[in-house]
Design a protein around this nucleic acid. Sequence first.
RNA 1: GCCCCCAUAGCUCAGAGGAUAGAGCGUUGCCCUCCGGAGGCAAAGGCGCAGGUUCGAUUCCUGCUGGGGGCACCA
Length: 576
Amino acid sequence: MRRYPVIVVTREMSRLVREALQAAQTAGKIPEFDLDGVDARASKRAEQGDYSAALMPFARSARISPLQLAQIAVEYLPEAESVSRAEAVAPGYVNLFLSEDWLRSQLEAIYTEADDLYRLQIGQGKRAQVEFVSANPTAPLHIGRSRGAVVGDTMARLLEAAGYDVQREYYFNNAGAQMRNLGNSLRIRYLEALGQTVDLIDSERETFYQGEYLRDFAHELALEKGDAWVNEDYQVFKAYAEQKMFEMIKATLNRVDIHHDIFFNENSLYESGAIWEVLEELDRRGYVYKAAKSAVSDQQGDDEESGGKAEATWFRSSNFGDSKDRVLVKSSGEPTYTLPDIAYHKDKLDRGFDLLINVLGADHYTQYQVVRSGIQALEMDASKIHVIIVQLVAILRGGEAVRMSSRKGDFETLDDLIDQTSADAVRYMLLARSSDTHLNFDLDLAIKKSTENPVYYIQYAHVRCAGIFREAVARGVRVQNPDLNLLGEPELKFLRKVLELGETIELSASAFEPHRIAFYALELANAFHPIFDNVRVLASDVDPAVAQARLYFFGAAQIVFRRVLHLMGMTTPEVM
RNA sequence: GCCCCCAUAGCUCAGAGGAUAGAGCGUUGCCCUCCGGAGGCAAAGGCGCAGGUUCGAUUCCUGCUGGGGGCACCA
């Protein structure tokens, strides 16, 4: 059995205050009332203790003043080695001060936990799946997609830290018209590569993928196959392009240390017949009808030109609050993407996960709601699905927005971005914002002034710790039985910040807000650097016993920074 | 027209209904030259507007203003 010597401090402090109030209730000092909402938080100011609980909301239930309630809580507070002192303060706070001995003892816990530091139990025994990226395999990974990639992978890492068994999945959208267009575009490039001039017909002109990467594929193909494929139709080209695209996307993701466990092919939903089963099921429940136009449409008065056309198959999404019904099968007999999407989500639910996370771009939100309606129509448990909407990324160059279009090929890819900055910088910059705010990615800043990026400030903390140990080794200094009582207030101050990692992981994982770890990392670095500056280890005026304790401390600090950087998918450089 | 997101320091952004709203960058002034220099300290500077709920609102609700995105028989 694994032991968990490191505790989430907010949990522990909340527990103590609740137990105190419960004891007071048992003793008849205050009436019985629900204590669930009693929570402690890290205090903002040192004079307000290390953690505090606001009891004002409970004064009414307790039928005494908030301050009296706080005083009673202090009076009945159970003994705990983590707390040295507690005080009641107006208007009704209980301020808790961490024991310094206990703080020091956490250093040993950090060494024990090491790379598993703050692996929590909240997800223990539960399976979670994070679906992210899921970009169409028609072009290299676009920078707009990379935000979801980073957010999704970091979310997965945080869920792992919270104790979940996590699976990363990529929904590989390899069916439908777009893939046909991709195959056809490659066919045309292939013919060009063989020296033929190809005139595009009108329909091709609109759907042609112009990116440079298809020329590259075509050249390889021409070298490999010669003119053997000149009379082939789009299908062989499609298969070839898909395979190449798949490899390319995986290679790109690999550069930012993102690895999916499963690539789920949309095609398989066609091959297994799953989409038709879903259609039948929806039909059986009365949510499907055939018509030339929607029976319910919003006020906009669209669909004018649809009169007299062949009938499509519609889903009554308006029953679930949608402004209009949506097409599941086109009049051509070909499904829209909605039908396989619903089938895919049904499949994920059928696989028995406790938690499903979907990382989606804001432009897919409406579509997701249709899918969710579909899941509800199938009477499946949609509450297991949590969506992280990432707002769009605006790329700024020279203070102006860069236009992004994957059709025209003037995009900025994730590969470009990594080339021009670094994998670490890309991960940090895309992570360090709340997902539901728009993100301005200043390309100039990211390219030319990497020193201004906080990513280096954070990594530098790790580098500095490593530097001390390099020097210590060079001088033949080794840690042996350090006396932790020789550590001073600056070191304990840093430790207090370290202990907030637990609640950061807990909150990130339970609220699906991975950006919190990025801000925590910066705060931790902020707490670290001033201390590093003042707390010398190997300087000549430092007592050897003190040096031992400090070396032990910086070793722990390095473990913490390594853990935090790993949680963000970043590297842990030893030198910079 | 309808739906979603956003509005906090000069800029980019944090902020789980609680005490005196925080970082980074930029600006200004200062410190150290060491086991580290991509270093440290300090200052100036802020919750779009109007209501509501609450003991208490940057946080929740409504409206307004401003910005972004979406509302296909495209994916």
